[in-house]
Design a protein around this nucleic acid. Sequence first.
DNA 1: ACGGGTTTGTCTCAAATGAGACGAAAGCGG
DNA 2: CCGCTTTCGTCTCATTTGAGACAAACCCGT
Lengths: 196, 196
Amino acid sequence: MSQPINNLRLRRTQKLLREALIELIEERGFEALTISEITQRAMVSRAAFYRNYHDKYDLVERIFGEAMHDLFNAVSVEGTEHPPQIWVKFFEHIAEYERLYRALLGRRGSSWFVLKMRAFIMDLLNTYAQHPQWQASPDRPLYPTTDDFVPNLIATMMIESITWWLDHGRPYTPQEITTRCVLLASTIFKETSTWR
Amino acid sequence: MSQPINNLRLRRTQKLLREALIELIEERGFEALTISEITQRAMVSRAAFYRNYHDKYDLVERIFGEAMHDLFNAVSVEGTEHPPQIWVKFFEHIAEYERLYRALLGRRGSSWFVLKMRAFIMDLLNTYAQHPQWQASPDRPLYPTTDDFVPNLIATMMIESITWWLDHGRPYTPQEITTRCVLLASTIFKETSTWR
DNA sequence: ACGGGTTTGTCTCAAATGAGACGAAAGCGG
DNA sequence: CCGCTTTCGTCTCATTTGAGACAAACCCGT
């Protein structure tokens, strides 16, 4: 039970498996991959894979999960005084792990992962949406909290923005693409909050 | 004693150590490296290094040795009917392992390795020099076999050609650079074989 | 030449891994 | 629907590996 102090081997096999996964998604697409293929590329036994991960979905989830963990750490350290800052950090993170996201969101990617990512972005929206900058007016809720139609749209738009951004060689800085996305999002928020 | 069938772990640690070595030579130079540094980068224990290699020189020697082994295999398979072909293969090999040779022959490289490589090229010269293409005339030896002054010069020239070639982004194909080198070498051979 | 820190090379023992086998499940072509 | 093949997921045991300690060699500044 008690996790031993030694985790170099664990970290190493996980690193090798992650790198192998990204390479192989780029080459053959996520859905086509088998566990054997990943472990062979990683120079790791199949048994070692199952000791570390449940399946290939688990592998991706944990890569993404830890990346998001790092993202939140980076943001909480630097402060959230200016909420759109979280999105700048978000795009910076995307840029840093470009290979991963191109692989997972691109043509050969995984629609399962797109769902996963949309859910995450919606969480982020819910967490940070109450900031004045995104509010249509102070006394009116931004959108009906019982309905996540609008957040869903925004999240989809964000993902599309990410893939476009990566596919076009990141023609904007994280700051610039964030500004454009926030502008778009707040427009949608304002428009739709007048519905009824 | 008896080498077990299992060598995945061995091959993996060796691969990781080699990659780490090349990276670190590029970053900090060969002579400055410590074993700990290499093993940390490779995510391998120091003990594992010593199980596989005697020291960092051994590590480099074996990378080079196996590369040369592959080189000879490639040549012997494709036939040596046209001897300068070995040099084309040689430059192709250099191009393939560009990072290694830039690292080892460049500014931050190892003068020890340059000696090693010169000796190897001289071997190659001795092995293939008797071909008519490089002979001044059929009835006269190419150079006095008791003296390796000229092979030494040629080998030095070859190494300089390699570093120049790599440093300038390989402006010639392996075939072209070989042609130029063979031309230079045979000129030197012809000139010096008239000495006495 | 002397000392303090680093690196080397070797060792031991616990722990993660690799090989390989196994039945079950899934894909697939006829 | 039925075989045939591949992949999955789990298991066991031998083997390599990591952690850590050790003395010896090596620096390097005083």
